[in-house]
Design a protein around this nucleic acid. Structure first.
Lengths: 142, 142
DNA sequence: TTATGTGCAAATTTTTTGCAGATGG
DNA sequence: CCATCTGCAAAAAATTTGCACATAA
């Protein structure tokens, strides 16, 4: 019984085996996870869970502000807990490697955009794609 | 016969009515366009064109480096010419309004990311989502 | 002529929805 | 008991693919 399960319970939502399994999986991950991965993890321990339950649960969690989704390269939707320190990934378009980005590097831009346009940018909604150092230096021999 | 058509021809690809219509539509747009919008535009002037031809043409153009795709809010894939001055949009999550972003505001961050991580960020691959000034100030009366 | 390109319909993938039955409180 | 949840299967939406036919060169 993790925090998320309690939060839901307090808010009057029922606790079910499926829900708890999903919530545990969400709590267990540190970064981002897709519905597909989430489904696989939950399915391992609770085979009769249905993908639509995952979708519905994530939708509920997002409404309640407990999780958020982000769009990764090529349209993959991934979820993360809302209570983790916001962080951002640099994803290499070529080798798909992911690097954590120090958010203090993003803040100045967010601030300037706010000042200039009054726009509150939510940069964590998307990853930043590009080419990592290794891939920029050219393909390996093979 | 626009530039794109010529480029393709020079590279040995055949020029067909469908292709030319698609290429013209791509050239005509200034910003980003989805396959769906592209299909509608082309279809108006060339009804028998098929969506799969659009997909195949865009794929070809991307391989040749003539266009690029970007992911908009909620997973919509949009295309733009590779030769237009790169630009970026701020998209409001609430009212969906789009504002052009002065890229000089983005450059410092790109530079710092390059210096710190050796990562060449391609920020135009995603739009920047967030809340526009109007929506931040609260919902209108209605 | 013949390799390339296209239409069409079917397959994929990801997500949503309707509904009847299961179940938590 | 009964409103909430879930499973299931079908529907959607976006994209890809196989294949036979069309056509540019």
């Amino acid at each position: 019984m993790g925090r998320l399960s309690d939060r839901l319970h307090i808010l009057g939502y029922r606790s079910t085996v499926q829900r708890d399994a999903i919530l545990e999986a969400v709590e267990a991950i540190d970064g981002h996870i897709s519905v597909d991965d989430l489904y696989r993890r939950v399915h391992d321990r609770f085979p009769q869970v249905n993908p639509s339950t995952i979708y519905r649960t994530m939708e509920l969690l997002e409404e309640l502000g407990l999780v958020q989704h982000a769009h990764f390269h090529d349209g993959v939707t991934k979820w993360h807990r809302a209570d983790v320190v916001p962080h951002q990934h640099l994803v290499c378009e070529r080798c798909r490697s992911e690097t954590d980005l120090d958010l203090t590097l993003v803040d100045p831009m967010t601030r300037v955009i706010r000042e200039r346009y009054g726009f509150e940018a939510n940069l964590t909604h998307f990853v930043i794609v590009g080419l990592c150092q290794t891939c920029r230096e050219g393909p390996p021999a093979a």
